[in-house]
């Protein structure tokens, strides 16, 4: 009897190993946004286009591979470089190496995935998001907050098929606050007075932004105001400890009101000089985007920003 059992088992294994028609798994109508190999190919294209843009200090090529606030930040940076460093040879050195790829299983477009990249030139880590808006458009980089190499990213929660578990921006299940509420809370904190009660951590991002604002307020004869607003959150994922990683964007507007008879002469090489060329006699306004990567702990802990990337995107003044 034992021999017969072995024979039946062996036959079942043999038959099962072949491509016998069988019902599909139960993941429904879904798609894992990208495999590791696909992400590598997408990144290769991005590197090549980015190099072209850096070579010519021209944001136009980036339009094909970047979008949204990130494109505005990089276009602003290239414009500053073009206006201020025209005589110098642009530095197009880039040493970007993919460390990890995390792709969620999604049931409709837009598709997106997270890629963790080591920037060997600037000695930091980029936690980036590529998005494909529709089936007929290409992949574009839409978020690129940067973390210090010493910052340890929380382990992300993956499902049985190793797909990232995305999180609804407006649901706070198991978290101290929802992803959107987190970014809203950061905007509220930065708009508030230092020391005021805050729902978020007094982290290095908040400290740095307050220092920048304080420096602007010290200019004689100028009334400086700053305003922060949160943009809608699109990307958030569960971390393995039950918390969440939130990719958010904050819009910042710096306004300068100058007393009559006074003027501001921006320092050479500054972004203000590039966007508000010459002297500023009356009013000026600079707009910035700051992309943040916030970790929201499970239960009651306060969110903390662990990565950010930002820059000036627009300016007007006279």
């Amino acid at each position: 009897m034992r021999r017969l059992g072995v024979a039946v088992l062996a036959s079942a294994v043999l038959v099962g190993g072949c491509s016998i028609p069988h019902p599909k798994d139960s993941d429904g109508v879904t798609k894992v946004a990208a495999s590791r190999a696909e992400a590598e190919a997408i990144y290769d294209r991005y590197r090549a286009v980015r190099k072209t843009a850096l070579d010519h200090l021209d944001e136009q090529p980036l339009v094909a591979v970047e979008a949204g606030a990130l494109l505005a930040i990089d276009a602003g940076a290239l414009m500053v470089a073009r206006r201020l460093l025209l005589s110098e040879t642009p530095d197009d050195t880039q040493e970007l190496r993919i460390l990890d790829v995390y792709a969620p299983r999604l049931d409709s477009y837009p598709l997106w995935f997270v890629v963790v990249v080591e920037d060997g030139v600037r000695d930091l880590t980029k936690v980036q998001i590529f998005q494909r808006e529709s089936s007929t458009t290409g992949w574009q980089l839409v978020a690129s907050p940067e973390t210090l190499p010493s910052t340890e990213l929380p382990a992300l929660d993956l499902d049985a098929s190793d797909a990232l578990k995305p999180l609804d921006p407006f649901r706070a299940g198991g978290l101290s606050m929802s992803p959107q509420a987190t970014v809203d809370a950061y905007a509220a904190t930065l708009n508030g007075a230092p020391g005021a009660a805050s729902e978020v951590s007094e982290d290095s991002f908040v400290t740095q932004m307050r220092q920048v604002a304080n420096k602007q307020r010290q200019i004689d004869g100028v009334t400086f105001t700053q305003e922060w607003t949160a943009r809608p959150v699109q990307y958030a994922a569960r971390s393995a400890d039950g918390g969440a990683l939130v990719f958010g964007t904050l819009a910042r507007t710096d306004r300068f009101q100058i007393e009559e008879g006074r003027f501001i002469n921006w320092p050479e090489g500054s972004e203000q000089k590039a966007f508000l060329s010459g002297r500023l006699y009356s009013t000026g306004e600079l707009r910035y985007y700051h992309q943040i990567l916030a970790y929201v702990p499970p239960d009651e802990g306060k969110p903390v920003v662990i990565g950010q990337y930002g820059g000036v995107v627009d300016g007007i003044g006279y």
Binding site: V29, K31, L106, D107, T136
Partner: peptide
């Protein structure tokens, strides 16, 4: 193709 791609297309 994957049904998600086709449905969008």
């Amino acid at each position: 193709a994957n049904a998600v791609d086709v449905a969008d297309y």
